[in-house]
Nucleic acid binder design. Sequence first.
DNA 1: CTGAAAGCGCTTACAG
DNA 2: CTGAAAGCGCTTACAG
Lengths: 347, 347
Amino acid sequence: MQDQPPAPRVSTLEDVALVAGVSRASVSRVVNGKPGVAEHIVDAVNAAIARTGYVPNRAARALVTRRSGTVLVVVSGTDTSRSGPWGPGEVLADPFFGRLAGGLMSSLAPRDVHPVLMLAVTDDDHARVVSYVREGSADGVLLVSAQAGDPLPQLLTDAALPVVLFSRPDHPLALSYVDVNNRAGGAMAARRLVERGCRSVGIITGPLDIPGAEDRLVGFREAMADHGVAFVPTAAGTFSVESGSAAMGELLDQGVDGVFASNDNMAVGAILAAQDRGLTVPDDVAVVGFDDSTSALMCRPALTTVRQPIETMAAEMAGLLLERLEDPDMRPRAAIFDPTLVERGSA
Amino acid sequence: MQDQPPAPRVSTLEDVALVAGVSRASVSRVVNGKPGVAEHIVDAVNAAIARTGYVPNRAARALVTRRSGTVLVVVSGTDTSRSGPWGPGEVLADPFFGRLAGGLMSSLAPRDVHPVLMLAVTDDDHARVVSYVREGSADGVLLVSAQAGDPLPQLLTDAALPVVLFSRPDHPLALSYVDVNNRAGGAMAARRLVERGCRSVGIITGPLDIPGAEDRLVGFREAMADHGVAFVPTAAGTFSVESGSAAMGELLDQGVDGVFASNDNMAVGAILAAQDRGLTVPDDVAVVGFDDSTSALMCRPALTTVRQPIETMAAEMAGLLLERLEDPDMRPRAAIFDPTLVERGSA
DNA sequence: CTGAAAGCGCTTACAG
DNA sequence: CTGAAAGCGCTTACAG
């Protein structure tokens, strides 16, 4: 055993109380901004805090308050078979997730709660998520599920743990979620395409077992029907760029001159595929995307796309969870946001 | 005051000890897998744990062990003036960051340590980072600094807090970091371009106050010099797609037929700009990128690029920090990784 | 190998 | 308005 270097022991509440000449209770009260403390005490304590460089110990506080001040942000359902050469980071690399994470952090930070990130793909992972909040490491979970059939929403509600979802769950569950009005978004895309004069439009869908992907299709179809077209050629993608290219190939073979891709990544894939065939966008084929992620600017022409107000949605997610933490009896709520069309060059 | 619903009180060590008929110390020992516990005790405890559904309380454990089991991942230096229409999430939306985050999580998760994410742009934010670890909420920090002149590395080392950086700091500091051999990477790009037969090559640099960006330039220039070319046209970008397009414009005006863009985003911007002028890549101009991020596949032709082994680098970052946490006297180390050229269509 | 006890650094009734 | 005291749920010397 060698001597530890003179361990720069961090000062505690007790130290502050000593130098301020008051009780620990008083220090605690001023540190937490509780009302009804005499001014001279407040001053003495603040001075003592400054002198000692005191910083409250979170673990100690958490132990008694039963609040960790952190929430778990879990990205769920990245099944390994789908992860490409870029590994598990691929979901996180989706520009869409960046906007979401940024939005979450912006609304959490001011309330002094911090997000811990977790990927959940295996059953073990799912169990880990549940444990993490049961052991009090996080107060609740913000879940973005990238896959159909995700068991986590169910697991979490069964355990009565506070959770809010991004996107409507695939079956009814007593939990809050935020979503964009996907049908309205699909309809906007359809309208745009017909207004442009497209005579034969198709759609590249996402995985149809994901509710949002299905809704975009339905909204698109209905709007087309309103314009008198009964049949819409369809090709399924997986939300990746490559899948967008492949699906576009199929659609092009059917002679479309306008396509709605259910997310931006697939839309850029579609544009690339069209250009590969010597077609020009939007003159030969128009394409509209969905999301308005950073990839919308990674192609020429830039993407006309249905924008999700992700930052706002993220803020609402955070708000719903925080509210639920205050009030355990809060009833689950859904917050649905309207998309907007952002017009750029592709359609 | 209404009655609280019969509060499903979570069971504690004490409960387990009671049902197992042993002391709390024994329960603690088996929970933590400490050696030298009689088998019948281990069994009794495990049975009791199963029966009670016991989950250790992290705050309590952290309070006594002085270990939170979490690390802070901070993305620093997103100055607001640079954040575009996508807000603060834009850094996170960089496909490059996705790979990094994925790699970090993969190596942290098995050791049961969890990353909390934090963006740091203002002075307040910087202070918040320091406080967060001083208050014991995190055991150390993994810092990726996206900006020159970031004060955080200095602040952290001054406070003697465990930290490891992604990228060499802009001035010498007693801390560990991982980096790619940027000069070697620049040289690879140069070699590729001359082998292709390019006669007039240029470079799109990143912000030159960032060490890595500077190194890529130096490596590129030196390799070109080795091939007898003394002057290399240069245009500066900011690592964004748009800046790549703009810089490419300048270079094209000078008649280049090959360009090295210091990251993939700028490389796709460059390709787009070339195509806007009716040029074809790689025949009229070849372009090679840097990173091998997901954006490398978002353009046609796909990007030939200098790949950073990000996942491996992330694992090393995590390893260095964890090692430092075990051994406070560990000397700072730098781990430099070799890039590789991945050949696709653009050069 | 096991247990009784102290202690980690806070907050919060409870008296006064 | 303030303080003494109990207690949050663990881990870890220390005896035995």
